[in-house]
Simulated assay, not measured.
Amino acid sequence: MESIEAGSAEERDLASDSESISAGAGPGCSSDSAIETLRLAMLPGIGPRTLTALLESFGDPASVFAAPDHQLASVHGVGPKVITAIRSAKDTIDVDAIAHWCRRERVEIVSDESDHYPRMLSDLPDAPPILFVDGQVIEEDEIAVAIVGTRHATVYGLKQAEHLAYSLSRAGVTVVSGLARGIDAAAHEGAMAGGGRTIAVLGSGHGQIYPKEHQGMAKAVAAHGAVISEYPPYAKPRAGMFPQRNRIIAGLALATLVVEAPDRSGALITARIAMEQNREVLAVPGPVTSRASRGCNQLIRDGAKLIQSVDDILEELGPMRSPVQTADGHQVRNAAELKLNELERKVLGAIDPESTPIDQVIQRSGLPAQRVIAIISVLEMRRLIRRLSGQYVSRI
Score class of each variant (00 low, 15 high):
Leu40His: 08
Leu40Ala: 05
Ala41Asn: 08
Ala41Val: 03
Ala41Gly: 09
Met42Pro: 00
Leu43Ser: 01
Leu43Val: 02
Leu43His: 06
Leu43Pro: 00
Leu43Trp: 06
Leu43Asn: 02
Leu43Phe: 07
Pro44Cys: 07
Pro44Gly: 07
Pro44Arg: 15
Pro44Asp: 10
Pro44Asn: 11
Gly45Trp: 14
Gly45Thr: 11
Gly45Ala: 13
Gly45Met: 13
Gly45Ile: 13
Gly45Asn: 12
Gly45Asp: 09
Ile46Asp: 06
Gly47Arg: 15
Gly47Lys: 14
Gly47Met: 10
Gly47Ala: 15
Pro48Tyr: 02
Pro48Ile: 06
Pro48Gln: 08
Pro48Glu: 09
Pro48His: 08
Arg49Ser: 15
Arg49Cys: 04
Arg49Asn: 11
Thr50Gly: 12
Thr50Gln: 06
Thr50Glu: 04
Leu51Met: 14
Leu51Lys: 10
Leu51Gly: 14
Leu51Pro: 02
Thr52Met: 09
Thr52Pro: 00
Thr52Asp: 04
Thr52Cys: 05
Leu54Ser: 10
Leu54Met: 11
Leu54Ile: 08
Leu55Gln: 05
Leu55Glu: 01
Leu55Asp: 02
Leu55Ser: 07
Leu55Gly: 10
Leu55Arg: 11
Glu56Ser: 14
Glu56Arg: 15
Glu56Lys: 15
Glu56His: 13
Ser57Asn: 12
Ser57Gln: 14
Ser57His: 13
Phe58Ala: 08
Phe58Lys: 09
Gly59Arg: 06
Gly59Asn: 03
Gly59Phe: 09
Asp60Lys: 15
Asp60Ala: 14
Asp60Cys: 11
Asp60Arg: 15
Asp60His: 14
Pro61Tyr: 07
Pro61Thr: 07
Pro61Glu: 04
Pro61Ser: 08
Pro61Trp: 07
Pro61Ile: 07
Ala62Thr: 12
Ala62Val: 10
Ala62Cys: 06
Ala62Trp: 12
Ser63Gln: 10
Ser63Cys: 06
Ser63Glu: 09
Ser63Leu: 04
Val64His: 12
Phe65Val: 06
Phe65Leu: 11
Phe65Gly: 09
Phe65Gln: 10
Ala66Leu: 04
Ala66Cys: 01
Ala66Lys: 10
Ala66Tyr: 04
Ala67Phe: 02
Ala67Leu: 01
Ala67Ile: 01
Ala67Glu: 00
Ala67Trp: 02
Ala67Asp: 00
Pro68Asp: 08
Pro68Ser: 01
Pro68Gly: 01
Asp69Ala: 09
Asp69Arg: 13
His70Ala: 02
His70Lys: 02
His70Phe: 01
His70Met: 00
